[in-house]
Each structure stands twice: as structure tokens, then as C-alpha cells.
Amino acid sequence: MSRIHDMGGRLGYGPVQPQPSEAVFEQPWHARALAVTLAAGALGQWNLDMMRHARECLWPADYMRFGYYEKWLAALADMLVAQGVVCAQELRTGQAMGESPLATRRLSAAAVGPALARGAPSLRSAKAASPWPVGTRVRTLLPARNTRVAGGHTRLPAYLAGKTGRILMQHGSHVLPDSHAHGQGEAPEPLYTVVFDAADLWGQPERAGDEITADLWHSYLAPE
């Protein structure tokens, strides 16, 4: 059920290559790609969950061969067309067919600082009723999937599907990506950090007692 982005635990990758003192942006166009994406996002025609889903819906071969910011650009182009902000003809020719009615929403240079400082909090209620206290044993949904939209966006990784863990933290009630990514509203739910024993995930852990945590919404879980 999972898409190509769901990488946790996959085998076959080579070493991680740390570069302790690299530039913030390896290439000038990386910086432009990030900035164009953020500035276009400020038009308010999609939310973060929708954009994540657009990246996840790239053709798998594209997802794997694209670099990080190439994924961003491809998803941005797809989203701009899907939301009717630009049309395919404009993308093809690179020529605008007139000014957009959304131009009044354009992010100005002066508004950048406040917009970045404001962020987009997902917390909707700090005191959400959480029926499961810290320490509760819970089991995750199997298979990992969006239960509202077939093939839809979810934040339950496949490697954690059907596993038993224990609630470690409660975070109040947060916007549910499975709903929010599909225009079905924020549908906030209690969010928990759940801790899993590495042996329960991998069979043979690197070391007995190592742990993995993930932040999971109420509807991803059932009490054991």
C-alpha cells in the first residue's frame, strides 16, 4: 500500500555521506527552488499536507532519480496546474496568458520575515481529550493506509504498520494529514509519540533495547 517516499527500513542503500561544512544550498538553483515553492505556497491555494502528497505522487522512477529540490519543483508544477494557478499551456511555453487574479495575494519582500516567523501550527487543542494515557500499549493500523481516501496521503510509515508500541508523549489535538491533504478539512485528532522496541520492528535489532519512536494520530492506533 505504500508509496515510493515511504523509505524507513528499506534495504539496499549505501553509506550515508556526511559533509560537515557544506553550504546551505549546494547550487544556486536549489535556493531558488526552495524560495519559489515557499512564495507560491503563500498564495494559499494548497496546504503542506497537499504538497507532501503531490511529492509522494511523483512517478516512482522520477522520485528516485530526482534530487531533493527536483522533487519539490516537479510537485510544485503539478500542484500549480492541479489548482488552476497556471495552465499546462503556460508551463509548456513559459509564457503567461495574462495576470492571475491571485496576484493580490503575492508575497511581498517585506512580508517574508513575518510569514516565516508565523509558520503554520498544526495544534488545534492543547487539552484534547486523550483517552489513552502515557504508557498505554497500542497497536498500529495494518496495512498502513489512508482509511478515508483510497491510496491517499498518510503519515503512518509502512515499517510501523501492525506493530505494538507504548504511548510516550501526548501532544494535544493536531490537524489530520489524511484528511487535510484531500480537501476534507482539518479533522483534528489527538497526536501521540509512540515508542517501539527495535526487536519488534526488525526481528534482530542492532542492539537489544534500542527504540524507535514516531508521532501518530489517534485513528492510526488501537489499544492492545
Binding site: 531558488r32 524560495a35 503556460e90 503567461a96 503575492r106 508575497l107 519582500a109 520575515g113
Partner: peptide, 13 residues
């Protein structure tokens, strides 16, 4: 299309 301001991109970067 009037949707982004290059100066805003510079400010983000």
C-alpha cells in the same frame, strides 16, 4: 502572472 516577487525570493534565501 504577478504571483511571485523576485525580491521576496531573495528575502527567503
Amino acid at each position: 502572472k504577478g504571483l511571485i516577487d523576485p525580491a521576496a525570493l531573495d528575502a527567503i534565501i
